[in-house]
């Protein structure tokens, strides 16, 4: 097992011979390549891979097969074809959850990107206090989503700080039962989620701004472009890569969102804050409709897969 180092240095050599020479020894080369990897290394690779396959890919496949069954977890699953999906389409709560998820992606994504980007631009340059401001914006990020939910339950309590502050400035008419109002509850939860997300988005954009070419902006400034024009014409195009990542991450996160809704409203009042993930969880572990819940999870997967691939394609380009 002494042969180890011919890793990166050798690779171009194996890959580079011109096409005609390649045909005869191709299979043999693969074999010799395989043999050159020590047994221990195969073990190093296989243990984690098998582990992940068993705990991630195998269950994921199972969800697909469960989604075409009716199953209560006790008696054997009974195949029902696409009935679950037909039922979903007619299910008003599922429709609400789907709509709420769209609102969530747009509202949660849009607000956290706009605020996060604005703060990143404002706090891009070092200066007195800037580190403190950044830390303040970033702090909520370390609080778990479940605990964020509890924090904001305190904030939104009927006699809590938000209503008290509104009363203090004479806006009594704006006071609400934030989390009990079917029209407002979803947005109240959304604000709490944005509060936590902004710091993360800001960090991503701060890093993006750091790698922007400064001389371009300077040149534009010399040419008389004002800050607004410079931002839109010079800075934004350079952030394209970060935008893609932020977009993909935001959508993937939005489709996963569960903890904060569960902690604040559990999907209520009257299922008005139900997201696909919370409805799925409720169907699976509260009601016990495991097949139906699997069908919802397949819908979540179908909505997420495009963005997962976007993210992966970008990552694989980074690897080159």
């Amino acid at each position: 097992m002494a042969v180890e180092a011919p890793s990166r240095t050798e690779e171009p050599r194996t890959a580079s011979p011109p096409a005609p020479q390649r045909a005869p020894g191709f299979g043999a080369r693969i074999l010799s390549r395989l043999r050159r990897v020590p047994l221990l290394i195969w073990l190093f690779l296989l243990v984690p891979v098998v582990f992940e396959v068993f705990w991630v890919f195998w269950p994921a496949l199972n969800s697909f097969s469960l989604s075409v069954t009716r199953w209560d977890g006790i008696t054997p699953a009974e195949p029902v074809g696409i009935q679950n999906f037909v039922d979903l389409w007619a299910d008003p709560i599922f429709r609400t959850a789907l709509e709420n998820n769209v609102i969530w992606i747009i509202g949660f994504g849009g607000l956290s990107v706009v605020i996060g980007l604005a703060l990143a631009v404002a706090l891009n340059r070092p200066g007195p206090m800037v580190g403190l401001y950044r830390s303040a914006i970033f702090l909520p990020m370390v609080v778990s989503l479940a605990v964020t939910g509890l924090f904001w339950r305190v904030m939104y309590a009927p006699d809590g700080p938000i209503n008290a502050s509104l009363g203090l400035v004479g806006l009594e008419s704006w006071q609400r039962q934030w989390l009990a109002d079917p029209d407002l509850a979803l947005y109240a939860v959304l604000i709490a989620a944005v509060w936590r997300q902004v710091g993360y988005i800001m960090v991503l954009y701060l890093a993006g701004l750091k790698s922007c070419d400064e001389s371009l902006e300077e040149a534009a400034a010399v040419d008389g472009a004002n800050a607004w024009t410079r931002f839109w014409r010079i800075v934004m195009p350079q952030l394209k890569g970060v935008h893609t990542v932020v977009f993909a991450v935001t959508v993937i996160d939005s489709l996963r969102t569960f903890d904060i809704v569960w902690a604040m409203t559990r999907g209520g009042p009257y299922n008005e804050t139900q997201l696909l993930s919370t409805y799925m969880f409720q169907q699976a572990f509260t009601t016990g409709n495991l097949g139906y819940a699997s069908a919802i999870s397949v819908v979540i997967f179908a909505l997420a897969i495009g963005f997962i691939i976007t993210y992966l394609v970008r990552q694989s380009r980074n690897e080159d």
Partner: peptide, 14 residues
């Protein structure tokens, strides 16, 4: 990496 990006919901029941 893709395994980590999957929505956890699709894994919960299994």
């Amino acid at each position: 990496l893709a395994g980590n990006l999957l929505p956890p919901q699709i894994l919960l029941v299994p």
